[in-house]
């Protein structure tokens, strides 16, 4: 299982979204890495990619709103990291469509997404929780 309890920030809405994100990424990776032929995998891959494009943006917006609500000083830098990932997902998605659903592109995307997500939630997002804890900010701000 990709999700680990140590990734929890202590903000229930964000934690629930992270769990869902990890669940979807895990399911994406299982399809991506399965023994089935690429053509059989394409519908599930496409479905997950579309979900990621929508959900990542929605989750990032919610997380940024929470950061603003607690005056998180790293907000601007964190937003730039989010924007970089959104741009990457859009770019890969466009290349994937233009390449007629090339498998290599998705394998590369899957590998980068896995490492990026773990680092982002385990390191970058934890700084938000550390700041909130230091300020004694409770779940409701």
């Amino acid at each position: 299982m990709l999700w680990k309890e140590q990734y929890k920030l202590g903000v229930s809405r964000i934690d629930a979204q992270h769990r869902e994100l990890f669940r979807r990424v895990e399911s994406f990776l299982q399809v991506l890495r399965s023994e089935e032929s690429w053509n059989n995998k394409i519908p599930k891959i496409n479905e997950t990619l579309e979900f990621m494009k929508r959900y990542v943006v929605e989750h990032f917006q919610d997380e940024e709103e929470y950061q603003r609500s607690i005056d998180y000083p790293g907000y601007e830098a964190h937003k730039q990291i989010h924007n970089g990932m959104v741009d990457y997902v859009q770019e890969v998605s466009m290349q994937y469509q233009q390449s007629n659903e090339n498998e290599m592109l998705m394998q590369q995307f899957g590998g980068r997404l896995l490492a990026w997500l773990i680092n982002h939630v385990a390191a970058e997002d934890q700084r938000i929780a550390d700041y909130a804890n230091k300020r004694g900010i409770s779940e409701n701000g």
Binding site: M1, L2, L29, Q30, L32, R33, M104, Q107, Q108, F109, G110, G111, R112, L114, A115, W116, I118, N119
Partner: peptide, 27 residues
């Protein structure tokens, strides 16, 4: 490294593994 991150089995370096490791170098 990729086995630990994903909890999945990998036997050789392919595009997925190389990309994940490259992202770690980037991080």
């Amino acid at each position: 490294m990729v086995k630990i991150m994903s909890g999945m089995q990998f036997d050789e370096i392919d595009a997925f593994v190389a990309s994940a490791v490259s992202e770690i170098a980037n991080i």
